[in-house]
Simulated assay, not measured.
Amino acid sequence: MGVLPYIVLTIFIGGHIYRYQKDQFGWTTKSSEFLDKKSLKIGSHMFHWGIIFVFLGHVLGIIVPAGFYDSIGVSEQMYHVVALIFGIPAGLIALVGLVLLCWRRINMKRIKKTTSTSDWVTLIVLLVVMGTGLIATFFNVDSSGFDYRTTIAPWLRGLFIFNVNPELMVEVPVWFKIHVLSSFSLYVVWPFTRLVHAFSLPFMYFRRSYVVYRKLDKSHP
């Protein structure tokens, strides 16, 4: 857990740069909405909203140091309970949404024919990442269970300041290690799949002039 994260980060950043330089026209979600809108609307909304809250939970639990919560009077047990109350429903919603998206690609012939190998890889890796994440959470429901804020969290933060402490991961339960490794696999394939659209937020819309629509007057030719 000392060198591997930097290899993954290099592929993640380098892959995006390469993809943007070589395949700008392919930098898209490749939406299948015109083939089927109803099931996409349900599954996509559940997946995206669920994953947003899961991401925020990871930021609050891993990026924010435990000492900050101690300083504002949030005990370890209180944090653990709140994390479970919000984290488990968010994870389940995202997973159900992802399963629905997988189902439509497997059972709808038109969508199945337009699904590429990279799409299947993306869906499978996402299922593994989210599944292992929920398993790790359910195995850690006990309030006296493993505290990842004193092991995984400082290890991860140390990577960003080049202060690698792989020994912090030695005593981490295997289900958390599997989740971390599966997350690394997601970052490796990310630049080469449709997941790149996550970095294509339409910020230009905030400064773009309004488009004015006028009703057609049929009385004039």
Score class of each variant (00 low, 15 high):
Arg194His: 13
Lys109Tyr: 09
Thr137Lys: 04
Val212Met: 00
Trp103Arg: 15
Gln77Ile: 14
Val99Tyr: 12
Ile17Phe: 07
His48Tyr: 15
Met46Phe: 14
Thr151Lys: 07
Val196Ser: 01
Gly73Thr: 12
Val180Thr: 11
Leu186Asp: 06
Val129His: 04
Trp155Ser: 02
Val81Pro: 01
Thr117Gln: 02
Lys22His: 12
Gly67Lys: 03
Ile152Phe: 07
Leu84Lys: 08
Pro89Phe: 09
Ser143Thr: 15
His179Lys: 06
Cys102Leu: 11
Ser144Ala: 11
Gly131His: 12
Gly43Cys: 08
His45Glu: 14
Leu195Lys: 03
Val164Thr: 14
Leu56Lys: 10
Lys30Val: 04
Ser32Pro: 01
Val96Ala: 00
Val196Ala: 00
Leu35Thr: 06
Val96Asn: 00
Arg19Thr: 13
Met78Cys: 02
Leu201Gln: 08
Arg110Thr: 13
Leu84Gln: 10
Arg207Ile: 12
Gly15Thr: 12
Gly158Thr: 13
Val174Glu: 15
Ile62Trp: 11
Lys215Met: 06
Leu201Arg: 03
Phe34Tyr: 10
Leu126His: 11
Leu40Met: 11
Pro191Val: 09
Ile17Asp: 03
Trp120Cys: 04
Arg104Gln: 10
Phe203Val: 11
Ile42Phe: 04
Gln21Arg: 02
Tyr20Arg: 07
Thr114Trp: 02
Glu33Thr: 14
Val125Asn: 07
Arg104Thr: 06
Ile51Arg: 02
Phe86Gly: 14
Leu92Gln: 01
Ala94Arg: 10
Ile93Leu: 12
Leu101Ser: 01
Leu60Tyr: 12
Val172Arg: 05
Ala136Trp: 03
Lys41Tyr: 13
Ser32Asn: 06
Met130Ile: 14
Leu123Ile: 15
Ser44Glu: 08
Thr114Pro: 00
Leu134Trp: 12
Val211Tyr: 11
Pro173Ser: 07
Met46Thr: 09
Phe206Asn: 04
Val81Ser: 01
Gly14His: 14
Pro191Ile: 09
Ile11Gly: 00
Leu101Lys: 04
Arg157Leu: 02
His16Phe: 09
Lys218Val: 09
Gly2Ile: 09
Arg208Ile: 03
Ile51Trp: 08
Gly158Cys: 02
His45Trp: 15
Asp23Glu: 13
Tyr187Ala: 06
Thr122Lys: 00
Asn107Cys: 04
Met130Ser: 11
Trp155Ile: 09
Gly91Arg: 02
Phe199Ile: 05
Val125Pro: 02
Tyr213Trp: 14
Ile124Arg: 08
Asp119Tyr: 05
Leu4Ile: 14
Trp175Phe: 06
Leu123Gly: 11
His16Met: 05
Lys177Val: 08
Ile62Gly: 00
Phe47Lys: 08
Leu126Phe: 09
Ile85Asn: 05
Leu100Ile: 15
Leu9Thr: 14
Ile152Pro: 05
Val188Gln: 08
Leu126Tyr: 11
Asn107Asp: 12
Ser182Phe: 05
Val81Arg: 04
Tyr69Thr: 12
Ile135His: 05
Phe86Pro: 03
Asn165Phe: 03
Ala90Lys: 07
Tyr187Pro: 01
Leu127Pro: 05
Leu35Trp: 10
Gln77Lys: 10
Ser143Trp: 12
Arg194Ser: 03
Tyr148Ile: 13
Thr10Asn: 00
Val121Trp: 14
Phe68Cys: 01
Ser31Pro: 03
Gly50Ser: 06
Ile13Ala: 05
Val74Arg: 01
Trp155His: 11
Ala83His: 13
Leu201His: 14
Val64Pro: 07
Tyr6Phe: 13
Arg207Ala: 06
Phe55Asn: 10
Lys215Ala: 06
Phe206Gln: 06
Ile88His: 06
Met130Gly: 15
Met108Thr: 15
